[in-house]
């Protein structure tokens, strides 16, 4: 008996994570993902916990290496797309990615931007990143794409003067600012909190 849900969260990682955890709390365990599809199986309510991580900055090899590492630790993982794009020969340039991951194609990292990580609940908190340095790097990886999109719209706004580009630039700068604020907060905490 499986339950299928169709959802699209895009870049709203926290919302996706919250939804998956709510499903798990109701007794639904994720077994398969596709572009829009999430397929669940019945489980004990609260048996599993989920985290959603952005891995789009990694190269195919690094991403796969990381996924394998998590699987070896006993977690289950699912790749998930952050965009909704059905083209077959997609090639995209990602200036914000790490070296090795800058050209994303369907065969490499395109449509594998997110990693859904499942852990069997054991009463301990489930955090993938537990040092400030690491949390700052994660926020930085999420900030990159938004900054890039904002810069692209600013460029369009200059070349083709139309207010719509400036509106889009401002809209895509908002998430970048959100992550930047998180980076500032973490940096301050790293400096002032001794434990």
């Amino acid at each position: 008996m499986s339950k299928k849900c169709y959802r699209f969260f895009g870049g709203a990682l926290a919302a996706q994570e919250k939804w998956l955890n709510r499903m798990a709390a109701q007794g639904f365990r994720l077994v398969r993902t596709e572009k829009l599809l999430y397929e669940f199986e019945a489980c004990e309510p609260g048996q599993y916990e989920y985290r959603v991580e952005f891995v789009g900055q990694k190269s195919r090899k690094d991403g796969e290496d990381y996924r394998q590492f998590l699987e070896d630790l006993g977690y289950r993982t699912f790749y998930k797309n952050i965009n909704l794009n059905y083209s077959v020969g997609k090639v995209r340039w990602r200036p914000w990615a790490e070296p090795g991951g800058r050209i994303a194609t369907n065969a490499t990292t395109y449509n594998r931007e997110l990693l859904i990580v499942e852990k069997e609940a054991d009463g301990k908190p489930f955090e993938l990143h537990t040092t400030y340095e690491d949390q700052i790097a994660c926020a930085g990886a999420l900030r990159g794409p938004w900054l890039c999109i904002a810069a692209m719209f600013v460029f369009f706004g200059v070349v083709f003067p139309h207010v719509i580009f400036w509106v889009l630039a401002a809209l895509s700068a908002l998430p970048a600012l959100y992550y930047q604020t998180r980076i500032w907060r973490l940096r301050r905490e790293a400096k002032t909190k001794e434990w």
Binding site: Y75, E127, L128, T130, D134
Partner: peptide
């Protein structure tokens, strides 16, 4: 000291 999997990997 509890280490997150991502942090351990890094």
């Amino acid at each position: 000291l509890e280490l997150g999997a991502g942090t351990l990997y890094g």
